[in-house]
């Protein structure tokens, strides 16, 4: 694995499988009464969040703490950043404090890349979502979820058909998923109104469709993307009602899915907009499971970037747990 995780494209097939297999191993820790491993004891993980994102931050925080790392949460609001401190000075401060890994969420595409390649920091950088660029750990947890539901938690996703629906143009989740799923051998179809697809999407390793109904019957998983409020009055589509009618996943559409197919959403959802409430709450929905899996996958990523070659779950750790 590379030293940083900035893009899903940083992961080879072997890297991705290593993360997923390690996450499977670590997931069992969560089932134990003591959910903690000593693996990253004495290491410092900084959660550097320039955008509000409670769910991603607490997921990384739980992951780091279960590996016994020291966790520092640095939120841009109310910090020196809101007083105009630059990314560079923030990075230098974290370096001076001895951060071994920096988990960064930033509104600007490329900020994690800049942080990792600027020479400001020596630690590993993990992209926890940058602008409209990428969110690689989300893609990993989505792949983990698909693999568990569709492949018994083993191997890759060769030949699995995954449909991703919604605002691809502004979605970092979609970009990372397309890249990772292609690496894992899945066949991805993006579905969106033409206004919400980026120029050049035809060069991506996936299919593109404007019609959700023609893709559902042959999907093993359908992932609904959040439509952000600020898009709703910018003429990407006429009205919320029309968007929901043409691209929303309601019960009728869910019925068109094959028996085994799952329904995914990275959250937070707009119930009634891109996904109907009873679809989100149906047994096919993996939305809550995705959150649980997020912790295991992020543990695996932090462990592999920081822990190096030692096994994640050692005998000692198991004994400690057994006590």
């Amino acid at each position: 694995m590379k030293r940083h995780l900035i893009s899903a494209a940083d992961l080879t097939r072997d890297d991705a499988l290593l993360v997923l297999d390690t996450a499977e191993e670590l997931a069992h820790i969560a089932e134990r009464p003591i959910k903690k491993l000593p693996t990253l004891r004495g290491r410092t993980v900084v959660n550097l969040f320039f955008e509000d994102s409670t769910r991603t931050r607490i997921s990384f925080e739980a992951a780091a703490k279960r590996l016994s790392a020291d966790v520092i949460n640095f939120s841009a609001k109310g910090s020196s950043v809101s007083k105009g401190e630059t990314l560079k000075d923030t990075a230098l401060t974290l370096q001076a404090m001895g951060a071994d890994a920096v988990v960064i969420r930033h509104g600007a595409s490329g900020a994690p890349h800049t942080l990792a390649n600027s020479g400001w920091l020596r630690g590993s950088v993990v992209n926890a979502g940058d602008g409209t660029h990428e969110h690689p750990t989300q893609a990993l947890l989505d792949a983990f979820t698909m693999r568990r539901r569709l492949n018994d938690g083993k191997g890759d996703l060769e030949g699995r058909r995954i449909t991703i629906v919604g605002d691809v143009l502004h979605s970092r989740v979609a970009r990372s998923n397309v890249l990772l799923l292609a690496t894992l051998g899945a066949e991805v179809t993006l579905v969106a109104p033409p206004t919400l697809l980026p120029i050049g999407v035809e060069t991506w390793p996936c299919q593109v469709s404007y019609d959700i109904d023609s893709t559902l019957a042959k999907s093993d998983a359908v992932m609904m993307l959040r439509v952000q409020r600020e898009r709703m009055n910018a003429s990407y589509f006429p009205t919320e009602r029309e968007y929901s009618r043409r691209y929303g996943l309601d019960e009728k559409r869910m019925a068109a899915l094959p028996e085994h197919a799952i329904v995914m959403h990275p959250g937070p959802m707009n119930r009634g907009m891109e996904i109907a409430a009873n679809v989100a709450d149906s047994p096919r929905s993996t939305i809550v499971e995705q959150v649980t899996n997020g912790v295991s996958v992020r543990m695996a990523v932090l462990y592999l970037l920081l822990g190096g070659s030692e096994p994640a779950v050692t005998t000692t750790a198991t004994e400690e747990n057994a006590k």
């Binding site: 660029h133 970092r172 120029i199 999407v201």
Partner: peptide, 18 residues
Amino acid sequence: AQMNEGTVSGILGLRGWP
């Protein structure tokens, strides 16, 4: 707009200047 709108801007997630 942040860069030329095309294949690269789509991948980088930077707003395009067509």
